[in-house]
Amino acid sequence: MDFQLSDDQRALRSGMRDLLGAVFDRDRMRAAVERGGGVDRGLWRELGAAGLFALRLPEEAGGVGLGLPEAVLLFEEAGRALLPGPLVATHLAAGQVKGAAEGEAVVAVAEGAGRPVADLGDADAVLVAGGAEVLTGEALEAFAAGAVPVRSMDPLTPLHRVEGRWAGAGASEGRSAGAGASEAYPGALRREGALLTAAEQLGSATRTTDMAVQHAGAREQFGSLIGSFQAVKHLCADMLARTEPARSALYAAALTGDPVEIAAAKLLADQAAVRNARDCLQIHGGMGFTWEADVHLHLKRAWLRAARWLTAAEAEEILAADLGPVRPLYSGSAAGG
């Protein structure tokens, strides 16, 4: 069985990387940092025109007609570029929210459980946990009215805390359940959100590995490139050793859609993104801790993503439940052994 990417998939990934290099290079990324993040509507429409949000919609509905494996490749590139905004939620809502598929609408997600809502200030709609209701219009205004801005560890991701505001909102104009909504969020929607977030984490882990290797090959200390030092070599090797198993798990989960495999992929991708960013910062030394370096941005975004859609504790519970009850290695009395 061949699990290598097809030529079309490679071309799709390459095209996304080229697009992001043109519309969201480092200068634009740093400009976004300075203005405190938020959604650039022009960039959002560029992404919509490129098919990021409509990628999995059927062609007869105006979409591209591709699947989760292709979506994972594109979101991996988005994570590599530190692209801001609620990309995953807008992609998942492309078939429910008018304008989302084309990048004309921005969709945020309220996961509940006390988790803050990202990019609420820019949202035209909000997916709400517990039934996948979509809040728009007056319902969205009522939802956002009680939102309190909270300090975000990631300067590219504004956060708001909204406690229990949707619980008593009731059905109203602008609040509707999409197709299969009663099943979607706790099931397929949540799993797909976790999978695509894991893809972003993988992209970030890959990028910080590249940054570390590039710096180790250029920075000199004590008359030698730091990449020649054994400790630095080990750090770089460890980064690669985390990234590639996470990649394999992610691509496999994208093919099967299995909840247990998605949980494993999210867990491995979160670990790779966070730990690789920390090792990359270590390799950069004192410079890595400065605001001017980009390493800390990857670390902060990785921390934030690790707490979204499926946390490590939740993923571990899914994996543990799949193992079944723990059985003793031996039966009978010890004396009989």
Rank of each mutant, 00 (worst) to 15 (best):
L329A: 10
A181Q: 11
G114C: 10
A277F: 02
E163Y: 13
L47P: 14
S182L: 14
G193A: 09
G62Y: 07
A315F: 08
L268E: 14
Q96K: 15
V117I: 03
V134G: 13
E183I: 13
R161N: 02
L235S: 04
F229Y: 04
R10A: 11
G193H: 07
Y330Q: 05
E104N: 10
A254M: 11
R35N: 15
P158F: 12
Q4W: 14
P84T: 06
G62V: 04
A139D: 13
L83A: 00
A147Y: 08
E200S: 11
E183M: 14
C280I: 03
R115F: 01
L225E: 11
P245C: 07
N276Y: 04
Q271C: 02
A118Y: 04
R30I: 15
T206V: 04
A252G: 05
A315M: 02
T197A: 10
P158C: 10
A129T: 12
G164C: 12
C236K: 02
L304N: 06
V326R: 02
P69L: 01
L92N: 07
M211G: 09
D154E: 05
V274L: 07
Q96F: 10
L83M: 08
D40H: 13
V326N: 11
E111W: 15
E138K: 15
A205V: 01
R26C: 00
L189Y: 08
G36Q: 15
E192F: 07
L135A: 02
A252E: 08
F229Q: 13
E220I: 02
A265K: 05
A179L: 08
L92T: 06
L159C: 07
L55P: 08
V232S: 12
R41Y: 04
A108Y: 08
G180P: 10
G324S: 00
L57S: 13
L43A: 12
A252L: 01
A231K: 05
L255W: 04
P86C: 06
L20S: 10
V232M: 05
Q214K: 08
G103L: 00
T157W: 13
M16V: 06
P84M: 04
D270H: 10
G337R: 14
G121Q: 09
A169E: 12
H234E: 14
R327E: 14
F3G: 09
E76N: 09
E76V: 01
L55Y: 13
A216E: 08
E163W: 11
